Amino acid sequence: MKKIEAIIRPEKLEKVSDALIEKGYHAMTVSDVRGRGAQRGVALQFRGKEIMVNLIPKVKIEIVISEEATEEIIEIISQNAYTGKNGDGKIFLYEVEKTINVRSE
């Protein structure tokens, strides 16, 4: 089993989620997160003043899936989260040793 964590722009969540569901991948956990990468924050205009925002709102999608499906899911996320600009996000892949279903345990 593998765990995929994708940190993407919030405005891309619906597109990514719809594309995953269309391919039959329904199970996922979504969290609102904040962070920064290479861009080190952004400058925004607020009431005529420029303010620096160091931690940018993002969305984290977590999916635990069989090893065979990982490349397809990574491709779906990459294609649907892409804008071509800094801050599109990152995808991380982890080994999962074991899963336990709480309801039937």
Rank of each mutant, 00 (worst) to 15 (best):
I21S: 03
K15G: 00
Y94Q: 07
G37F: 12
F92C: 10
E95Y: 04
V96F: 04
N80S: 03
I51F: 13
T99D: 12
I56P: 00
E5L: 15
I56M: 03
L44R: 06
Y82F: 04
N54K: 14
K2E: 14
T70Q: 06
F46A: 08
V96L: 06
E22A: 15
V59I: 05
D18W: 13
D18A: 14
F92S: 10
E14C: 01
Q79L: 03
Y94V: 02
K98D: 14
M52P: 01
V53R: 10
D32K: 08
A38I: 09
T29W: 03
I100G: 04
V42Q: 13
N101H: 11
L93E: 08
S17W: 02
A6H: 12
K12I: 01
R103G: 03
A81F: 01
R9W: 03
V33S: 00
L93R: 05
E105P: 06
E105A: 08
S66K: 11
V64H: 02
K98S: 07
A19T: 00
Q39R: 13
N54A: 11
E50F: 10
G35Q: 06
K58I: 02
K58D: 01
V96E: 05
G87E: 03
E11A: 04
V30H: 01
T83P: 00
M1F: 04
G84I: 03
I4H: 13
G24C: 05
I73H: 01
E11P: 01
I74Q: 13
H26T: 09
T70P: 02
I65H: 05
V96Y: 12
E11W: 12
S104C: 02
E71A: 11
N80P: 08
K90T: 07
R36T: 09
K90I: 05
I100Y: 11
S31Q: 10
E5V: 13
P57N: 03
P10G: 06
Y82M: 00
T29M: 05
S104F: 08
M1C: 15
R40A: 08
Y25V: 07
V96R: 09
V30D: 02
I4R: 06
A6V: 11
I91N: 02
F46K: 10
Y94P: 02
V96I: 15
V42M: 04
E5A: 08
I65G: 05
K23F: 07
K90A: 09
I7H: 07
D18P: 00
I65K: 08
L44E: 15
S31G: 10
P57T: 13
F92T: 06
V102A: 11
L44F: 11
E75Y: 05
V42E: 13
Q79T: 09
R36K: 13
A27K: 07
V102H: 09
F46I: 12
I73C: 08
E22M: 14
R34N: 03
R40G: 04
M52S: 09
T83N: 01
S78E: 01
Q39S: 10
H26V: 09
I65W: 00
L93M: 06
D18V: 13
Q45N: 07
K85Q: 05
A81K: 00
D18G: 06
Q39G: 10
K3A: 14
E72Y: 12
M1D: 06
V64Q: 03
Y82Q: 00
E11Y: 14
F46L: 15
R36D: 02
Q79H: 13
A69G: 03
I91Y: 02
S31I: 09
A27H: 04
L55W: 00
V59P: 00
A6I: 12
I91K: 02
E62M: 09
Y82R: 04
A69M: 15
E68Y: 13
